[in-house]
Simulated scan of single mutants.
Amino acid sequence: MRHAPSVPEIVRVDTSSLNSAVAHLISALEPTGGNFNYLDGTKRVRSAHKGLHDLKALMSASPSRAKMVGHAHNMDVVRLAAPNAFGRKTSVFNLPPRKLPYGGDRLASYRLPFFFVEEGSVKGYFLQPRKNTHFTTEQYGLMATVVKRNLLDTEFYGERVEFEVVDVSRKVNDNERSLSVYTLSELQLWSEADVAQHFRVVAAALNIIEDEQLVKKVRRPLRDKELPLFD
């Protein structure tokens, strides 16, 4: 049974030891929580970057019955993340699906909502919408390293590139969500050796989980044709 966690999921793995990586991945691959996703909120945030700089309008569309369960949580994300685009001149575009090869024959999806151009720079955009999912700045540094080296620097060679991280989680010891925004200049990029070591441990941990069948269920990728890299 093969598991394929996305790039944002594998950068959060604790690779300080093989045992810690196995434990982290077991927990991540068998999540608990509400039966909903953040696709609706993500699309509304993308609309803000496409030029709809009106929070009331962005939040006004009624959700379908299938999206009602997570509607309030999605609107919390929009309320915090969308205004970050207001007053900016951005041109949004998508890339076809891409996978990051690692660990021999493993592939991890990038799960980026979109890219945009602003003031002559091509910017990758990553939204972390989950309330209780916490990234450290070091983990965001690894995420930025992967996106810059494998997407921005290859797809847009010679162009000015940037990576923007928008996090709307509940910070540790806080009850409510809050907005944090990071760019490349604010994150410490990882060395090639450190990146390779991290992914080696992740791959080894997944091998153990699969060989010993420690996680019984394979999660279906979350795909959306309007967000090609968001799977």
Rank of each mutant, 00 (worst) to 15 (best):
R2S: 04
H3D: 01
P5T: 10
E9D: 10
V11K: 01
V13C: 09
D14T: 12
T15E: 13
S16H: 13
L18P: 07
N19V: 00
V22F: 04
V22N: 05
H24S: 12
L25F: 06
A28R: 09
E30R: 10
E30D: 15
T32P: 00
N35Q: 13
F36H: 13
N37M: 03
T42R: 07
R44E: 15
V45I: 15
V45T: 06
A48R: 04
H49P: 00
K56T: 13
M59H: 03
S60W: 07
P63E: 05
P63S: 14
S64W: 03
R65S: 13
R65P: 00
K67F: 10
G70P: 10
V77P: 04
V78R: 04
A81P: 05
P83L: 11
N84Q: 14
G87I: 06
R88T: 08
S91Q: 12
L95Y: 05
L95P: 05
L95E: 10
P96Q: 10
P96D: 13
R98E: 14
K99H: 12
L107C: 03
A108K: 01
S109Y: 02
S109F: 02
Y110P: 04
R111F: 11
F116H: 14
E118V: 09
G120I: 07
G120Q: 10
Y125V: 02
G141K: 01
L142H: 05
M143G: 02
A144Y: 02
T145G: 02
V146F: 12
V147C: 05
L151W: 05
L152F: 08
D153W: 12
E155T: 05
F156P: 03
E162S: 15
F163D: 01
V168Q: 07
S169K: 11
S169M: 10
L179W: 11
S180A: 13
S180M: 02
L189G: 02
E192Q: 09
A193G: 06
D194M: 08
V195Y: 03
Q197R: 14
V201D: 01
V202I: 05
A204K: 11
A204I: 02
A205M: 08
I208E: 14
D211T: 01
L214V: 00
L214E: 06
V215S: 08
K216W: 04
K217I: 10
R219V: 12
L222Y: 01
E226I: 00
P228Y: 11
P228G: 06
F230R: 08
D231N: 12
